[in-house]
């Protein structure tokens, strides 16, 4: 397959090919599952915490989907030749990237949500006056929604940088060829630049999903019932910190390690296609 990756000696062929870090991770995983099955205590913890799995995954997926859309928009604005759009997008990205995710979360939840309610109320004032819709209040947005909003706003900034790098990685000749054929600016972007840009940054984009899964644990500070929050509550009431956080870590690792492996496969495949 790969002639250049020749092992140093014939005897160590198999041993040198095994990714030992992965073997160790899988080994610990199997041990953990086996231990948990044998131990009633672990099974109870697992039952208490695993129901947060869906919340964690939903928060991560929804935030990721929105931040992809917003990030793509911001990324395109950042390479825009229309100066005000470029400046505004850059202002946003640099501002948000300079804040800790936790601060963004608090800010959106306790400053942003009431402000958003106020904005919506003034925008929809005629409808509210006629009683068509209820006026919004800060609490109209539940904490899961605020968490998703915060993660979206934060990750859109990171993801926009990835898209920008992808767009800039596309060969200028491709754009010239499109222009020479009479493509409009928008056609050039959508039909020529973006397909190649996205391909180039697919692994980086996938890595952001792994990152957002991990950062979704921050929503527990708002009391959203994700894996971390359920673990925190359970551990505090039973004092089984060691066992509970073992389970919490195990659940996160199941998601993140498997996704990281998928990214590796994706990277290798893309590289192979380029080389062909």
């Amino acid at each position: 397959m790969n002639a250049s990756a020749r092992p140093p000696s014939g005897a160590s062929t198999l041993a040198s090919r095994i990714p030992w870090w992965l073997a160790a991770l899988v080994g610990f995983g199997v041990l953990a599952v086996a231990g948990a099955l044998a131990d009633d205590g672990y099974r109870v913890i697992f039952g208490a915490v695993a129901s947060g799995f869906g919340v964690t995954l939903t928060v991560a997926l929804v935030s990721y989907a929105f931040s992809l859309a917003l990030g793509l928009l911001l990324g395109m604005l950042r390479v825009s030749t229309f100066r005000p759009a470029m400046e505004a997008a850059t202002f946003y990205v640099e501002l948000v990237r300079g804040l800790p995710m936790l601060v963004i979360l608090y800010y959106v939840a306790f400053v942003g949500a009431p402000a958003l309610a106020g904005i919506l109320n003034s925008l929809l004032a005629p409808f509210i006056a006629r009683g068509v819709i209820e006026p919004f209040q800060g609490r109209s947005f539940d904490f899961a929604t605020r968490a998703v909003l915060a993660l979206t706003l934060g990750y859109a900034a990171f993801i926009s940088e990835i898209f920008r790098a992808g767009i800039e990685s596309v060969d200028k000749g491709q754009i010239e060829a499109a222009h020479a054929l009479g493509f409009s600016g928008a056609q050039t972007m959508v039909r020529v630049v973006l397909p190649q840009a996205v391909r180039n940054v697919l692994p980086a984009l996938a890595n952001e999903f792994v990152a957002i899964i991990k950062d979704s644990a921050l929503v527990s500070v708002l009391g959203v019932q994700d894996i971390t929050q359920l673990g925190k509550v359970y551990a505090a009431s039973t004092f089984k910190f060691f066992e509970t956080y073992n389970v919490v870590a195990f659940l996160y690792l199941c998601m993140t390690v498997s996704l990281s492996l998928l990214v590796r496969v994706l990277e290798r495949r893309l590289k192979g296609e380029v080389a062909r």
Partner: peptide, 30 residues
């Protein structure tokens, strides 16, 4: 640009499209 066809030193074929798509795209789009 429709009137003046351009051939580049570096070819600049669209890398993500097949040869057929490369040739068929502009007439369809423009």
């Amino acid at each position: 640009r429709e009137d003046a066809g351009m051939v580049f030193q570096a070819f600049n074929l669209f890398a993500h499209l097949t040869v057929l798509e490369n040739v068929a795209l502009a007439p369809h789009l423009v």
